[in-house]
Computed example of a mutant assay.
Amino acid sequence: MPTPQKIASFEFARVIALIAIISIHCQLFMDYGFINEEPWLNYITNQLARFAVPVFFLIAGYLIYPKLNDQPYQTAKSYGLPLMLIWVVWSIICLVSPFNLGIVAEHGYLAERQGYWNYLMQNPINTLFEGGLVHLWFIPSLALAVLMIAWFVDNRCRSLLLPFAAIFYIYGLMAGSYQVVTGVETPIFTRNGPFFSFLMVSIGFEARRRNWSMTSAQALALALVGMAMHFAEAYFLHGQGQIFNMNDFLLGTALWGAGLFFWLLRNPNFGGHKIWLTLAKWVLPIYVVHLLITIYMNNVAGIVGVSTISRDTIVFFGTIIGSGVLVYLLEKTPFSFANLRQIKLTRRRVTCRET
């Protein structure tokens, strides 16, 4: 049965996932909701939003399957290079944009920027995988995951795809959130690179290739089990010294994301209103620009001298509205995200050895 180009439930989920990510980066509820002198309201809401990135990766893997299966390297190139151009352009913008306006006013632009540049150069390898601002890690990680899948497809060893992706994921956990237990070290933060993205994109890819499906009840059960595992792991690791809200992915996160993904797949018309389909077109641009707007909204909150709920309101809604306005204005210029993603790449003849 042919799959429609736009699956309404996927588009709806992408918008909700973006809002969840913005809530993480706005650091909501950090000044109140304390239990035993720890901001547990932030801890809980922060980790509740951790479904978002896995869902992004899973959807990407599912949607790219037909082209990636037929023309693996050509698809990886045509998909990844425009994304990487966006990453380069916005890394440069973030590198030159001052974050702390107070320091700029008191000590000058270069004094403010040099502190940040020196911070990035403390670990240049990690910065290479991340970019000019921390949230931009998502783009090279996605492009790298697609390229790695292309290698497995081109070499006719797709049966090894998920096992190898799982190995990357487990290593990422051991050197990431579980590092406080394992002592395993790595030169880059394991949220970056392929450690997180490879498995998630591969599951989406394989779900379409193998025509995997679940009932709505089974998918929700999987999601709930995964979420429960994620929170149990986070609580255990918190006692070992890994702060509760610092977990990007855990063992349960993959199950949590997969359960939500299969529920969306089972209910393709969910969220089918045209408003969600329209907003979904803005997800990538708003994701790219939003953290810079969040930084400036924090500056505004500091200048007006607000905290707690007032600060959260300014930063959260200011980020959403400000990012939307900025993207809207950018789309009217030659530097729009649409133009960057429509780069014409030289086509090469590709012979596919596997169907």
Rank of each mutant, 00 (worst) to 15 (best):
T3V: 15
Q5F: 05
S9L: 05
F10M: 09
F10L: 04
F10W: 00
R14P: 07
I19D: 03
A20W: 02
S23H: 10
C26E: 07
Q27E: 14
G33N: 11
L48V: 03
V55Y: 01
F56M: 11
I59T: 14
L63T: 14
L68Q: 13
A76E: 02
K77L: 09
S78N: 15
P82L: 08
M84D: 03
L85E: 10
V88S: 04
V89Q: 02
S91C: 11
I93K: 04
C94N: 12
L95V: 05
V96N: 05
S97F: 11
F99G: 05
N100G: 00
L101H: 11
L110Q: 11
L110N: 04
E112D: 08
R113V: 09
Y116M: 11
P124S: 01
L128F: 15
E130L: 02
G132K: 00
V134Q: 12
I139Q: 01
S141V: 06
M148S: 05
V153M: 02
R156W: 07
S159G: 10
L161N: 00
L161D: 01
L162E: 01
Y169P: 00
Y171E: 06
Y171G: 01
S177W: 04
V181Y: 12
V181E: 07
T182D: 07
E185C: 08
F189R: 07
P194A: 01
F195C: 03
S197K: 10
S197C: 14
F198W: 00
L199H: 02
S202G: 02
I203Q: 02
N211Q: 15
W212Y: 15
L220Y: 10
L222G: 02
A223Y: 00
M227S: 03
A228M: 09
H230N: 03
H230Q: 02
Q240D: 13
Q240S: 12
I243R: 09
N245H: 15
N245F: 13
M246H: 04
T253D: 08
A258F: 12
G259E: 12
L265M: 06
P268F: 12
P268M: 07
F270L: 15
T278L: 13
K281V: 14
Y287S: 06
Y287C: 09
T294A: 06
G302W: 08
I303H: 03
G305D: 08
V306I: 14
F317Q: 06
G318I: 03
I320N: 09
L326N: 07
V327P: 12
A338Q: 10
N339V: 04
R341V: 03
L345G: 13
R348F: 12
R353Q: 06
T355H: 09
